[in-house]
Computed example of a mutant assay.
Amino acid sequence: MNIKPLLALCRISNLPTVWMNVLTAMVLIHQLRPEAIEWHWFPLLSLALSAFYCGGMVLNDLCDYQWDKQHQPYRPLVVGSVSVKTAVIIACMLFALGFFIIALAPFTQAGLVAALALFATIALYDWVHKKTAASIAIMGLARALVFVVVLMALTADWLLWVVVAAGVQFIYTLSLTLVARYEHIRGKPYAGPVIPRMIAAMALVDGLLLAILVSPVWLLAGAAMMLLTRVGQRYVRGD
C-alpha cells in the first residue's frame, strides 16, 4: 500500500509546527513552575497533539469531500487513493490516541477538559469553515488550544506567559487563515508557496517569542522546526 496518500491526508509535513507549540508551552511552564515539568512528557504530548492535528486534517477532507471534487481534485479522498471508510477509521483512531495520552497526564481531568475543547473546536471548524468567514477565528482558537492542553495537562493552572504564547499563535493563525481564504476568493493560487511558508513560519514565531522571553538560543529551535516543516512540504503538501 502506498503510504504517501495517507501522509497527505493527515498533512503530516506540518507536524513540526505542533511540536514547537508543545515545546514552547513546556519551556514557558518550566520558567514559571519548574517542578511541574518532566521532560518525558514532551514526546508524549507532541504525539497526542499531533494525533489531534492529523485527525482534524482527515476530518477536514471528509467534510470538504464535495467541495474538493470541484476545487481540489488532487486530494486523496477525491482521487480514491484513500477510501472514505478508511479515512473515518483513521480519524477516530487518531482522536482516540490523543485523548488516551492526555488521560495519562499528571492532571487528567483538566487535561481532558482542554482536549475536549480542542476536539470540539476542530470539529466545529471543519464543519463550518466553508460556510462562514467567522471560521478564521475558530481556526486560530484551535491552534491556541494546543498550548492550553499542554498547560492544563501539566499544571491545571493558567500561567500568564503560556496564555500569551497561545494568544500570539491565535493572532498569527488568524492572519494565515485570512491569506488562505483570500487565495480561494481570488480563484487562483499565489505566485509562490505563500501558505506553506506561512504555516512553516508558525514554528519561527514560537522561536522568536522564546528568544525574547527566555533565551536567544530558542530561536534556533524555531528555525530548525520551520526548516523541517518546509523540507517535509516538498514531499507531502501541507496546505
Rank of each mutant, 00 (worst) to 15 (best):
I3Y: 10
K4E: 04
C10I: 14
R11M: 01
R11N: 00
S13P: 08
L15H: 12
T17P: 06
M20A: 08
V22R: 07
L23I: 11
T24Y: 04
A25E: 14
H30M: 14
L32F: 15
R33P: 00
R33E: 00
A36P: 01
E38F: 14
P43D: 06
P43A: 11
L44E: 03
L47E: 08
A48N: 13
L49M: 02
S50D: 01
S50C: 08
F52C: 03
Y53E: 01
C54A: 15
G55D: 08
G55R: 13
M57K: 02
L59W: 13
L59S: 15
Y65W: 11
D68A: 01
Q70F: 13
H71W: 05
Q72Y: 09
Q72T: 01
Y74T: 02
Y74A: 02
R75P: 00
R75T: 00
P76C: 02
G80A: 00
G80V: 00
S81W: 14
K85R: 12
K85S: 05
V88W: 14
I90D: 12
C92P: 10
M93Y: 14
L94G: 07
F100G: 09
I101H: 13
I102G: 09
A105P: 05
A110Y: 08
A110G: 11
G111D: 11
V113S: 08
L116T: 10
L118F: 04
A120N: 10
A120H: 11
T121W: 08
A123F: 14
Y125D: 03
D126T: 09
H129S: 01
H129K: 02
H129W: 08
K131L: 04
S135Y: 11
I136H: 13
I136W: 09
I136T: 06
G140D: 08
G140P: 08
R143I: 08
A144W: 15
F147Q: 03
F147Y: 14
V148L: 06
V150N: 10
A156E: 03
D157K: 15
D157F: 12
L159P: 10
V162W: 05
V162Y: 07
V163T: 13
A166V: 10
A166F: 11
A166S: 10
G167N: 12
Q169R: 11
Q169K: 11
Q169D: 12
Y172R: 01
Y172G: 04
T173P: 09
L176M: 07
T177N: 14
L178I: 07
K188H: 14
P189E: 06
Y190F: 06
V194P: 04
R197W: 12
A200P: 09
A201D: 03
A203T: 01
A203K: 05
A211I: 07
A211G: 12
I212D: 03
P216Q: 10
P216A: 10
V217G: 09
V217F: 09
W218M: 01
G222W: 03
A223G: 02
A224G: 03
M225K: 05
M226E: 09
L228V: 05
L228G: 01
T229P: 05
T229G: 07
Y235H: 07
Y235F: 12
G238K: 12
G238T: 05
D239M: 02
